[in-house]
Amino acid sequence: MPDHSRYFDHAATTVMRPEVVEAMLPYYMNQFGNPGSLHQYGLLAKEALETARTLIAGTIGARSKELIFTGSGSESNNLAVLGAARRMRRLGRGDHVIASSVEHPSVREACHALEREGFRITFVPVDPHGRVDAEEVRKAVRSNTVLVSVMHANNVVGTLQPIAEIGGWLRQQGILFHTDAVQSYGKVPVRVDELNVDLLTINAHKIGGPKGVAGLYVRKGVRLEPIVYGGGQERGLRSATQNVAGIVGFAKAAELAVSCLPAEKDRLERLKRRLIERLLSRIPGCVINGDPDNSLPTHLNISIERIEGQALMLELDRLGFSTSSGSACSSTDSEPSYVLLAMGKSREVALESLRISMGRTTTEQSVDQLADALVQVVKGW
């Protein structure tokens, strides 16, 4: 069995917490009903579903009816971007959508799909730290702009975006605002009113919950076009029998993550600083990609001169350490990260990047061991 403390790819997924597995098991065994059924099995499942909805919605400061369950963060992002843009065009409000140049592929590709439907898309640039300037968003807005999507925290470098500032201004203009909070939820405070968002994506498996379940916050009064049609579940926005066991697990993971957030955030920030100090002092040519002062406590992206990130990742894996050379959603792509290129990094530096992401199982000892392993690999290169 691998040593989970040496797992440094928490941005891709996390190990399920034992409490989450325990909470889910009854809904695979005895309480297996379909929440759409009217008999006792269905009613018990429905009760569990709505209890979980209320709990998860509360962790982001939302009402229970404002939370839609989906099958993944990518699906939530697609529903937000495609659903909002198509609805607004159908109402005659406009056909222009804005997103940042460093969005997750599920937002970028949804924007490209809209472009093929005749929408106008603007991707706003980021600075060398991967941060969007709120003024760039303002400058990109047109009279026909109907939606802006800017992620809360970047999945590759961890940079946090000025979501509250952007959202406050967009609200005054009457423009819908979506943020992908998959990476930030459970790691830093995420409250929909403080962020001034109309749509917000969260995910279970990034916080110790199960894969295959996620959520989309839809502010009261916001209307979307569905992208899945059928039986009308989830207010008609996501027709499919709900994954009750997964949703119950999501709720337990959310409860644990939010209750532990302040202490865990401080702990991970200390570990991140420790790792940075050890790498920069011991490895010549090592640079940090991203914003060192305004990023997630979990994420660290580095480039080491003349060593490709994928080769470095494979050597570390051989030594028992799991890292990543990019997003798990594009792990088979040998091209340099578009996020790093958008930040102004050269193709060489982008190819040399390695993502290290920490979480609940990371320890001070494992951080030191990873630093030692990196030094060992670089010396032997």
Rank of each mutant, 00 (worst) to 15 (best):
234 E>M: 12
65 K>C: 05
116 R>K: 13
157 V>K: 00
104 H>T: 15
331 S>W: 10
206 K>F: 12
330 S>R: 11
308 E>A: 11
16 M>P: 11
42 G>W: 11
135 E>K: 06
325 S>G: 12
116 R>V: 09
199 L>D: 04
334 S>Y: 05
177 F>A: 09
262 P>D: 07
28 Y>N: 05
284 P>E: 13
263 A>I: 00
106 S>C: 10
250 F>G: 09
97 V>H: 07
211 K>D: 14
66 E>Y: 07
218 V>H: 00
20 V>K: 07
123 F>G: 02
348 E>R: 10
138 R>I: 02
121 I>D: 07
32 F>Q: 01
206 K>V: 08
266 D>G: 01
52 A>W: 04
35 P>G: 05
180 D>R: 02
108 R>V: 10
214 A>L: 06
80 A>N: 04
350 A>D: 13
78 N>M: 09
24 M>E: 06
234 E>Q: 13
50 E>Q: 10
159 T>F: 09
60 I>G: 02
24 M>A: 05
321 F>K: 09
82 L>T: 11
319 L>P: 01
86 R>F: 06
232 G>N: 04
322 S>C: 08
146 V>E: 12
207 I>W: 04
120 R>Y: 11
187 K>H: 15
266 D>P: 00
377 V>I: 15
115 E>S: 14
33 G>K: 13
100 S>R: 04
236 G>I: 06
343 M>Q: 10
91 L>W: 10
296 L>C: 01
268 L>K: 03
297 P>V: 06
16 M>G: 09
123 F>E: 09
94 G>R: 03
295 S>A: 15
115 E>N: 12
17 R>K: 13
18 P>N: 12
236 G>Q: 13
152 H>N: 09
283 I>S: 10
172 Q>D: 14
